[in-house]
Amino acid sequence: MTASGTFGYGLEFEPYLDLGQLGAIVVKGLSLQPRLGNPTPRIAETPAGMLNSIGLQNVGIEAFISEKLPRLREIGTPVIANIFGETIEEYCAVARRAEESGGVAAVEANISCPNVSKGLDFALDPKATLEITRALRKATTLPLLIKLSPNVTDIRVIARAAADGGADALSVMNTVLGMAVDVRTRKPRLATATGGLSGPAVRPIALRALWQVRQAVKLPLIGIGGIMTAEDALEFLIVGATAIQVGTANFVDPQSSVKILDGLRAYCRENDVADVNSLVDTLQFPG
């Protein structure tokens, strides 16, 4: 599937690939009201990665349902609505509207965007994670994915809280909080100073986070973080992800996601793997 925030509403990519080939399209984070996002510069390139502070610019859940969803339904690929709000009530309202639309297969709650923090990063506190997960669990009967942040002391504690709250699966992970400075102007390279680091630079962090969460909970896990190739995706499957999301790679090559799928098929053929699922959670320890 495609990672939220890197694939627009999916339709931006129609000229480049057959969206029908994807396992799911995770759309850009949706809020109750449209949002304009943060001031520019919003992106900065760093070694093997990029910082972003887009600020969750989006058309809002209602415009998404009326303007984007009809075409997405025609394509038929499951649509996962990534949602966020400023309060638990807002999260729940967006989740309810997503379910009522009839065209959304699951909800992925972004409880950890580093760019709109107002002291309510639910994912940084196990109690807040438990509370919002429980509320969302009541608000929707759709499969509920909770997207975790790596910017925590111990991600296992947060993962357990989300599991206890009734999450159906966990998305591991969101971006890593980072910063870059232009030494000539001494200004931060993002208008908001800090932003979320993504791309291959964060892949080892994502893999570690996934590995730790694998130890902590029994839920299905979705691996996210710097996946550019089929080989990168395999790392996540072997460590315990049952699915993966492709993010920043979509910007570099809009066909990345389907190329990774082709690569996984080729790997399975060449290595006599009948079902890619048989690779999941097969990490071999040395000795």
Partner: peptide, 12 residues
């Protein structure tokens, strides 16, 4: 301007 993708997906 700074651009991430060039086709309206990253909103950078």
């Amino acid at each position: 301007c700074l651009m991430g993708c060039g086709f309206g997906a990253c909103l950078g």
